[in-house]
Simulated scan of single mutants.
Amino acid sequence: MVKILLHIRILPKFDVDIKGKGSNIPTLNISAFNLGVAIGASVGGRVVDTSSLGLNATPWIGAIIVLVGAGLTVLSYRQNKTHTTI
């Protein structure tokens, strides 16, 4: 359900925000989103298969992945802000 909401509500907004900045940008945006879904599914599957971690560890591993992603987003925003001249 959450993935559907992300696809419907967030991704079209990104496409509108970056129109005119390059013809491949919306395609790369969707590809990055799908790559994130695939990596999350792969990591989740490996966590469940690991006998020492199991199914109970998936929320914690997911939270770590989200925190890493949020940190990279903040880092990218700060780097972009310092390089942008108005």
Results as ranks from 00 to 15, higher is better:
Val2Asn: 07
Val2Glu: 09
Leu6His: 02
Arg9Ile: 09
Ile10Met: 07
Pro12Val: 00
Phe14Ala: 04
Phe14Gly: 01
Phe14Pro: 00
Phe14Glu: 02
Phe14Cys: 04
Asp15Arg: 06
Asp15Asn: 11
Asp15Trp: 01
Asp15Pro: 00
Asp17Val: 04
Ile18Met: 13
Lys19Ile: 08
Lys19Tyr: 06
Gly20Ser: 04
Lys21Thr: 12
Gly22Trp: 02
Gly22Ala: 04
Gly22Met: 04
Ser23Trp: 06
Ser23Pro: 00
Ser23Tyr: 03
Ile25Trp: 01
Ile25Tyr: 03
Pro26Phe: 02
Thr27Asn: 07
Thr27Met: 13
Asn29Tyr: 06
Ala32His: 05
Ala32Lys: 10
Ala32Asp: 03
Ala32Arg: 06
Ala32Met: 14
Ala32Asn: 10
Phe33Trp: 14
Asn34Ser: 11
Asn34Trp: 06
Asn34Cys: 08
Leu35Glu: 14
Gly36Glu: 12
Val37Gln: 05
Val37Thr: 08
Ala38Trp: 12
Ile39Asn: 06
Ile39Cys: 02
Ile39Ser: 06
Gly40Trp: 03
Gly40Arg: 02
Gly40His: 14
Ala41Ile: 14
Ser42Thr: 14
Ser42Asn: 06
Val43Ile: 15
Val43Glu: 02
Val43Leu: 05
Gly44Ala: 10
Gly44Ser: 09
Gly45Trp: 10
Gly45Val: 09
Arg46Cys: 14
Val47Met: 05
Val48Leu: 08
Val48Lys: 07
Thr50Asp: 15
Thr50Trp: 13
Ser51Thr: 13
Ser51Asp: 11
Ser51Lys: 15
Ser52Asp: 14
Ser52Trp: 13
Ser52Met: 06
Leu53Lys: 03
Leu53Val: 05
Leu53Gly: 00
Gly54Ser: 10
Gly54His: 05
Leu55Asn: 12
Leu55Gln: 09
Leu55Arg: 09
Asn56Arg: 09
Asn56Cys: 07
Asn56Val: 11
Asn56Trp: 04
Asn56Met: 12
Asn56Tyr: 11
Ala57Pro: 00
Ala57Phe: 08
Ala57Cys: 07
Ala57His: 01
Thr58Phe: 02
Thr58His: 02
Thr58Tyr: 00
Thr58Leu: 07
Pro59Asp: 03
Trp60Ile: 06
Ile61Trp: 00
Ile61Ala: 03
Gly62Lys: 00
Gly62Thr: 00
Ala63Lys: 04
Ile64Ser: 15
Ile64Asn: 07
Ile65Phe: 03
Val66Leu: 14
Val68Phe: 11
Gly69Met: 14
Ala70Cys: 09
Gly71Ser: 08
Leu72Ser: 13
Thr73Pro: 00
Thr73Trp: 11
Val74Gln: 05
Val74Phe: 15
Ser76Gly: 14
Ser76Cys: 08
Ser76Ile: 12
Arg78Ser: 07
Arg78Met: 11
Arg78Tyr: 15
Arg78Phe: 14
Arg78Val: 13
Arg78Trp: 08
Thr82Gln: 11
His83Gly: 13
Thr84Leu: 11
Thr85Asp: 11
